[in-house]
């Protein structure tokens, strides 16, 4: 084992004098692979009652110790692609129309045999949009006005919603049928639309749902200590790696002196472990810490919900999206 592969527990013991509380804390938490400490509230563990003022100067100085804790940042990764910026939308449409001008013509008879219903459909669609591409609007790249490939102000062709509509319109098939009287009529076959990007939970403002803010990473915000003891067994979680992704140092207003060991407990160091929720939902019904509420929040919502001290500790380890 190289020196770079020192396990986390040994690291903790190397960097400071041995503190029994640290190891109990870690030993309690690690086997469940779901250790957690409070993020937004005061520490769960009660403070030692014998709080003493530091002796001013002694012959042997007291060593400073910290209580080590581990916490879990439980997150749900984004499920949808993000919204494109206006620049990206216009750029992609510009490149698509350029491609239409520069590419070789569509090999029509390779894909649609002559005289087949597919070819008739193809002819009808191309007559409408003047180009084989389905999502660049009405634009004839090979015609005499092919140079006019830029959108006017207010044109919605570069919007993904419009492109989705045109793709759906392209997918639907017109079928000519004869009804009982023998008269021909055109029946359009409906195409299944994709689910909306904004869900019911988004509209209702349901902060507990995992079906909200599908474009963003969501974080479980609750005063939780251990996932299973708080969130219940109905969560399939995965702790990413054995390495904390950040830490927070929390100093007590006054250090707690331990005369036997000649040490002063200065405060707490909380290490954040990264975890992902793969399935399920938190359930506080049988939690052992008297928790009442939880929320799944995106990064900018966490900033409003958190105390600034805690926000400063986690803001740089949360992804932007």
């Amino acid at each position: 084992m190289t020196r770079g592969h020192i396990p986390f527990q040994r690291l903790a013991s190397l960097s400071r004098p041995s503190t029994p509380t640290c190891f109990t804390c870690l030993r309690q938490n690690r086997p469940a692979s779901s250790a957690a400490a409070p993020l937004d509230t005061a520490p769960v563990e009660s403070f030692p009652t014998h709080r003493a003022i530091l002796p001013p100067t002694t012959s042997q100085p007291h060593s400073t110790t910290y209580k080590l804790k581990a916490s879990v940042l439980l997150s749900r990764p984004p499920l949808l692609t993000r919204h494109l910026t206006p620049f990206e939308k216009s750029y992609f449409l510009y490149q698509r129309r350029l491609n239409e001008r520069l590419a070789l013509p569509f090999t029509r008879y390779f894909y649609y045999q002559r005289g087949t219903p597919g070819e008739i459909e193809w002819k009808r669609k191309v007559r409408e949009r003047k180009t084989p591409a389905r999502d660049i609007g009405v634009y004839n790249a090979y015609g005499s006005e092919g140079w006019n490939d830029e959108l006017l102000v207010g044109d919605q062709v570069s919007e993904p919603e419009k492109q989705l509509e045109s793709l759906l319109k392209d997918a639907e098939v017109e079928v000519k049928e004869r009804d009982i009287q023998g008269e021909a009529k055109v029946v359009k076959e409906e195409v299944e639309r994709p689910m909306p990007r904004i869900t019911e939970a988004d509209k209702a403002g349901d902060m507990k749902s995992l079906n909200r803010a599908l474009q963003k990473t969501l974080f479980l915000v609750s005063a939780e200590r251990i996932i299973i003891q708080t969130g219940g067994v109905n969560m399939n979680t995965w702790v990413v790696g054995n390495i904390p992704i950040g830490h927070q140092v929390y100093n007590y207003a006054q250090g707690v002196a331990n005369e036997e060991k000649r040490s002063v407990l200065r405060g707490e160091k909380i290490f954040f472990m990264k975890a992902r929720i793969l399935a399920g939902q938190a359930n506080l019904k049988d939690n052992q810490f008297g928790l009442e509420d939880f929320q799944w929040l995106a990064k900018e919502e966490i900033q409003k919900a958190f105390h600034p001290r805690n926000w400063n500790a986690v803001k740089n380890i949360l992804p932007e999206r």
């Binding site: 592969h5 190397l14 993000r82 990473t217 390495i243 990264k274």
Partner: peptide, 20 residues
Amino acid sequence: QTYHSTFASDLLTLMYTHHP
């Protein structure tokens, strides 16, 4: 997009070696 939003940070956590 998924690589940049999800995989990259998870891979970093999995592969990172800390040197105090």
